[in-house]
Structures are given as structure tokens and as C-alpha cells.
């Protein structure tokens, strides 16, 4: 999928000042802001009609919240990629959105360059890992290892943990690639795999939960 074909963006935020600033910056870079939504409800209503490629999602929006919207989008519109933005960086909310299928996470104070880079990568289906997110995901895997009942999803390889830790230490993919003597693309793949495995864990957990609750049709 090439860079120019996926430029339709939807913005979800309940702060008009943010919507204006983001719209201005994205349109200056050639993105097309096809829809804005101020609430989760609005987001889910406008999504099917406007066909965005990327949804830039604030986590703290009126019901349903950003993480829940991300869950629904990932389930019902798999070709729409979600990039999460949040002012507070509440660990649990961010992780819930990421596990549900968001491609990445930026704090709101991220620079314009970081935002544009993030939206571009998200549009292409790549993972957008900030140091903060890499740290959270690393911690999440560590927790899953210490809770055996959660075992069931795939574990991270030593190399993936190594790459993730370097991202968390603020190293750019280029620097990581140089230090590990691999290509930039290989680093990107490792990061991508980490995200994919985390989301797989989520699905394993959801399925197990469904089975335990007796709600699941096993043939499904």
C-alpha cells in the first residue's frame, strides 16, 4: 500500500482548539481530514460514511471512551488504523487501546513532526512506538510472564525485548539498526511483531473469557 493513497484522516477529540490545530497541520502536509467527531458516539456514527484510513483518537472523550471506540473500530473496520493521542497518558487506558488494536500512541504534546510521522506510519499500517509506549508494553509482557494463568499468547523473543528496551531508552530505529547490525526494516518488523503479539494476547484472553462465561460458540 503506498504512501499517497491512504491520506484520509478522521479526528476524534472533544477540544475544538485541538481539532483546529491538528486539522491545520495535517492539511498542510497533504492529508485530507474527512471527518471530525467530538464524542465516541459521533465517531462511531460518522465512521462508516466517511471511510477514513486513519483515525486519530483522543482517549478522554465523552462516552464511549477512546479505548472502547478503538476496540469497536478494530473489530468492525479492520482496514481503518487507529493512532491514539492522549494528554494524560493513563497507563491502563493506553494499554487497553493498544491491545484492542491501535497502531500507536502519542502524547498530545508531541511535536508537529512527530504527529505527521505518526499519522503517516499509521496510515501504512506500521506500529508507532514512542519510548513511553515501549516501556509500558515491556512492563505488560513482564506482568503476563509472572501471571501464569495469562499464558496462552505468544511470548516475546530475546531480540524483540532487546529492541523494545532500546526504543524505550529513546533510541531511533536507525540507531538501533546500526547497533544491532540489521536493517531499518528489520527493526520495524520486530516492533510490529511485538504489537501483533500483544493484540493476539488480547484475543486469546477475550476468547478464554468468552468460553468461561459460556457465551462462545466453540465452532465459531
Amino acid at each position: 500500500m503506498d504512501d499517497t493513497s491512504r491520506r484520509r484522516v478522521m479526528l476524534v477529540d472533544d477540544h475544538p482548539i485541538w481539532l483546529d490545530a491538528l486539522t491545520r497541520d495535517l492539511e498542510a502536509e497533504g492529508f485530507q481530514v474527512v471527518a471530525v467527531a467530538h464524542t465516541g458516539d459521533e465517531c462511531l456514527r460518522r465512521l462508516p460514511a466517511t471511510h477514513p484510513d486513519v483515525v486519530v483518537m483522543d482517549l478522554n472523550i465523552p462516552e464511549p471512551d477512546g479505548a472502547t471506540c478503538t476496540e469497536i473500530i478494530a473489530r468492525d473496520y479492520p482496514d481503518v488504523n487507529v493512532l491514539v493521542m492522549s494528554a494524560s497518558g493513563e497507563r491502563d487506558d493506553v494499554l487497553r487501546a493498544i491491545r484492542a488494536g491501535a497502531r500507536g500512541y502519542l502524547v498530545k504534546s508531541a511535536s508537529k513532526a512527530e504527529l505527521l510521522y505518526g499519522v503517516r506510519r499509521t496510515a501504512e499500517g506500521d506500529a508507532v512506538f514512542t519510548p513511553g509506549l515501549a516501556g509500558m508494553v515491556l512492563g505488560e509482557y513482564r506482568r503476563m510472564v509472572t501471571r501464569p494463568e495469562q499464558d496462552g499468547g505468544p511470548a516475546l523473543t530475546a531480540r524483540e525485548i532487546d529492541v523494545l528496551r532500546r526504543v524505550a531508552k529513546g533510541m531511533a530505529y536507525r540507531e538501533i539498526a546500526e547497533e544491532l547490525y540489521v536493517s531499518h526494516r528489520t527493526v520495524q518488523n520486530h516492533v510490529q511483531n511485538v504489537l501483533r503479539k500483544l493484540q493476539l494476547h488480547n484475543r486469546v484472553e477475550l476468547t478464554r473469557y468468552a468460553i468461561e462465561q459460556g457465551l462462545s460458540d466453540l465452532d465459531d
Binding site: A21, N60, K108, S109, A110
Partner: peptide, 16 residues
Amino acid sequence: HDGTLQVLALVEREGR
């Protein structure tokens, strides 16, 4: 979160 933090983040972002 709904007020101060949003404005601070915006100042940080636009001010640069």
C-alpha cells in the same frame, strides 16, 4: 485534564 492539561500541551506543541 479537560482544561489546563490540554492548553499546556497545546502551548508546548505550537510554541516551538
